[in-house]
C-alpha cells in the first residue's frame, strides 16, 4: 500500500518552475528520504504533500497527489493537515505557549477532545512518543522557549503526533541541531517509522542512508533516481547521483 502516489507534479512560483513533472510512490510505514542539493525543490515538494504550499499566494501546483488512494486536492486542507503532520527545519514551538499548551493546541483547536482529562492523556502520550516526557514532565507549565534546541524539536514532533497523523513530513529536522540532539531525533525517526509513514527532506546523503528505507535524489526540480536506499547508494544508475553521493555536486 502506498501512502502517497504522485503523478506529473509541477509547482511554480511566479511562473518560475521549481518542480518539473515528478512521479513517485511512497510506501506506507516506511521512511522515505528526499535528498538533493540546496535549491533543488526538496522543501517545495514536501510542502505540496500537506498543501502548505498554498499559503503562499504565488504558488501554482498541478498534477495528481493521492494520499492512500484519495486525491489530496479533494480533501479539506485542515483535515489533510491533521492526517499529514509536519516538522520544520527551525524548531518552531509557539513562543507564547507553555510546553503543555504547545502539544495541546492541535487537538484542542481541531476539537478532537471532549474534556481536559482526554487532552491531558493525549499530551502525555505524544510527549512520551517523542521521548520528551521524562525531561519535561515537571516543566509542563514553562514557556516552550525555555527548552533546548533539541528538546524544542522533539516538542514539535510531539505537537505533530498529538493530532494522530498517518504521515509525518520532516523538513531537514536536524539541520539546526547539535550532533547529540540530531542523533536523538534520528533514533526517534527509527522508532516512529514502525507506525507512521515518514517523509524526510535532507541535504545530507549520509543521514538519508542512516535513517531511510527509500530515497529519491532530486536535482533542479526533477527526480534523477529513486529506489531502495541500499540500491541507490551501492549501485547508483545515474552519473549525477554518483557525483552527488561522492560530494562532487551539492
Amino acid at each position: 500500500m502506498n501512502a502517497f502516489e504522485v503523478r506529473n507534479l509541477r509547482v511554480s512560483y511566479d511562473d518560475f518552475e521549481i518542480i518539473s513533472g515528478i512521479d513517485l510512490d511512497i510506501p506506507a510505514k516506511t521512511c522515505f528520504a528526499i535528498m538533493g542539493p540546496s535549491g533543488c525543490g526538496k522543501s517545495t515538494l514536501l510542502r505540496t504533500f500537506n498543501r502548505l504550499i498554498e499559503i503562499n499566494e504565488n504558488a501554482r501546483v498541478s498534477g495528481i497527489i493521492k494520499l492512500f488512494g484519495k486525491n489530496i486536492f479533494e480533501i479539506e486542507t485542515s483535515e489533510l493537515r491533521r492526517r499529514v503532520g509536519m516538522v520544520f527545519q527551525i524548531p518552531n514551538p509557539f513562543p507564547h505557549l507553555s510546553v503543555y499548551e504547545n502539544v495541546a493546541v492541535g487537538p484542542k483547536f481541531n476539537k478532537m477532545v471532549k474534556n481536559k482529562k482526554e487532552l491531558d492523556k493525549i499530551v502525555e502520550w505524544a510527549l512520551k512518543k517523542a521521548v520528551l516526557w521524562d525531561e519535561v514532565k515537571d516543566r509542563l507549565r514553562e514557556r516552550a522557549s525555555n527548552l533546548s534546541g533539541g528538546q524544542m524539536q522533539r516538542l514539535c514532533i510531539a505537537r505533530a503526533l498529538a493530532l494522530k497523523p498517518e504521515v509525518l513530513l520532516m523538513d531537514e529536522p536536524t539541520a539546526n541541531l547539535d550532533p547529540i540532539s540530531a542523533s536523538k531525533i534520528e533514533e526517534l525517526i527509527h522508532e516512529l517509522k514502525k507506525e507512521y509513514t515518514m517523509v524526510i527532506v535532507t541535504h545530507s546523503p549520509s543521514q538519508a542512508s542512516r535513517i531511510a528505507d527509500y530515497v529519491a535524489f532530486l536535482y533542479l526540480g526533477k527526480i534523477v533516481e529513486i529506489g531502495r536506499v541500499e540500491d541507490v547508494f551501492e549501485n547508483p544508475k545515474h552519473e549525477l547521483t554518483e557525483k552527488y553521493l561522492t560530494g562532487r555536486i551539492g
Binding site: 485542515s78 509557539f94 492541535g106 481541531n110 493530532l163
Partner: peptide, 8 residues
C-alpha cells in the same frame, strides 16, 4: 506555517 500545518 506551524499553525497552518496543525490544521488550524
Amino acid at each position: 506555517e506551524a499553525a497552518y500545518a496543525l490544521g488550524l
